[in-house]
Amino acid sequence: MTTPVRPAAGGERDEAVLARLQLLVTRKLDGLLQGDYAGLLPGPGSEAGESREYRPGDDVRRMDWPVTARTTMPHVRRTVADRELETWLAVDLSASLDFGTGRWLKRDVVVAAAAALTHLTVRGGNRIGAVIGTGAEPPARTGRWRAAPPPPTGPGVLTRVPARSGRREAQALLRAVAHTPVRPGRSDLGALVDLLNRPPRRRGLAVVISDFLAPPAQWGRPLRKLRVRHDVLAIEVVDPRELELPDVGVLPVVDPETGELHEVQTADAGLRRRYADAAAAQRGAIAAELRAAGAGHLRLRTDRDWLLDMVRFVAAQRHARTRGTTR
């Protein structure tokens, strides 16, 4: 089991937490990259490999017609992943990530996932970069205000970290993610994803880390556009209280993005049921949009061992792409 970390802290403690996180990731993830793959997922690549029999769900664009004609059985051509991989992270640090009722805040899991992906990329000599989004800059306070100003509603602050190779550069990227302050409001997830489409880059791996609470209509189209050129992995960070409410009587809750305060009577079984149904419908819509975009989908929870879930996901993806008989 992993131990709690708080990457959002500042100063020397921040550096100590990042060092501890790197050690934890290194110890548990070393060995996952054994084989022909240069990144987290065994991407299709561009170099032709062996053929195997067609299975439902295979990309028909990879049909191997000569082998199909010789054997009279449909075959698809496997490809070998490129040795040099460029990975880009789109890290959403909206105010809603500053929440957690499990062992970590959602923000902690976001930074931890970024650390794991960085380790998996740079240990093979590959390059990794990131775009980071957070809420809009808070307006300047003036003496005329008697109460807190309304939260900003702009597109948020978007930061780009150039793709580089090397452990020192990877540490700088992680510091940029961990030290980014969470500002009020929500970043524009669609604009954040679109930063990975501009300028056009060589085929690689794009990873979007977010709670995906923004409407799917905002980020679905940029994600589908990104999938045309790159392998895409979406890491959804979830807290258990976002899925169901406990029976604890009157529960005051604050929206971290707007500052609005509500009191919820959780003793009402009907309310808890409606909340769970609405949450399930919301997560179902997110999963459906990710499937429509053709993105891999990994869900990490604040009350679970996030690193173990990542290891299982990587193993399952590799098994799914390599199973079957080769010819």
Score class of each variant (00 low, 15 high):
Met63Pro: 00
Trp65Gly: 08
Ala69Phe: 09
Ala69His: 05
Ala69Ile: 01
Arg70Pro: 11
Arg70Glu: 13
Thr71Gln: 09
Thr71Gly: 08
Met73Lys: 15
His75Ser: 07
Arg77Met: 11
Arg78Cys: 15
Arg78Pro: 03
Thr79Leu: 14
Ala81Asn: 04
Glu84Pro: 00
Leu85Gly: 08
Glu86Trp: 02
Trp88Thr: 08
Ala90Glu: 12
Ser94Asn: 12
Leu97Asn: 09
Asp98Thr: 08
Phe99Glu: 10
Thr101Trp: 10
Thr101Asp: 07
Arg103Lys: 11
Lys106Met: 10
Lys106Cys: 07
Asp108Tyr: 11
Val109Ala: 14
Ala112Trp: 06
Ala112Asn: 06
Ala112Ile: 01
Ala113His: 05
Ala113Leu: 12
Ala114Cys: 13
Ala115Asp: 06
Ala115Glu: 10
Thr118Val: 10
His119Gly: 03
His119Glu: 12
Leu120Arg: 02
Leu120Pro: 06
Leu120Trp: 01
Val122Ala: 03
Arg123Gly: 07
Gly124Gln: 14
Gly125Phe: 01
Asn126His: 13
Arg127His: 10
Ile128His: 00
Ile128Phe: 02
Ile128Arg: 01
Ala130Ile: 00
Val131Pro: 02
Gly133Lys: 01
Gly135Phe: 05
Gly135Trp: 04
Pro138Lys: 06
Pro138Cys: 04
Pro139Arg: 07
Thr142Ile: 12
Arg144Tyr: 13
Trp145Met: 14
Ala147Pro: 00
Pro149Cys: 02
Pro151Gln: 09
Pro152Arg: 11
Pro152Leu: 06
Thr153Lys: 00
Thr153Cys: 02
Gly154Phe: 05
Pro155Thr: 13
Leu158Ile: 14
Arg160Gly: 03
Val161Ala: 00
Val161Trp: 10
Pro162Trp: 07
Pro162Asn: 06
Pro162Cys: 05
Ala163Gln: 06
Ala163Cys: 02
Ser165Trp: 00
Gly166Arg: 07
Arg167Phe: 14
Glu169Arg: 07
Glu169Tyr: 02
Ala170His: 05
Gln171Lys: 13
Ala172Glu: 14
Leu173Met: 14
Arg175Lys: 10
Ala176Trp: 01
Val177Lys: 05
Pro181Val: 08
Arg183Ser: 11
Pro184Glu: 11
Gly185His: 09
Gly185Cys: 08
Gly185Val: 09
Ser187Leu: 13
Ser187Ala: 15
Asp188Leu: 09
Asp188Pro: 08
Asp188Cys: 10
Leu189Ala: 10
Ala191Asn: 05
Leu192Thr: 00
Leu192Val: 00
Leu196Tyr: 01
Pro199Asp: 05
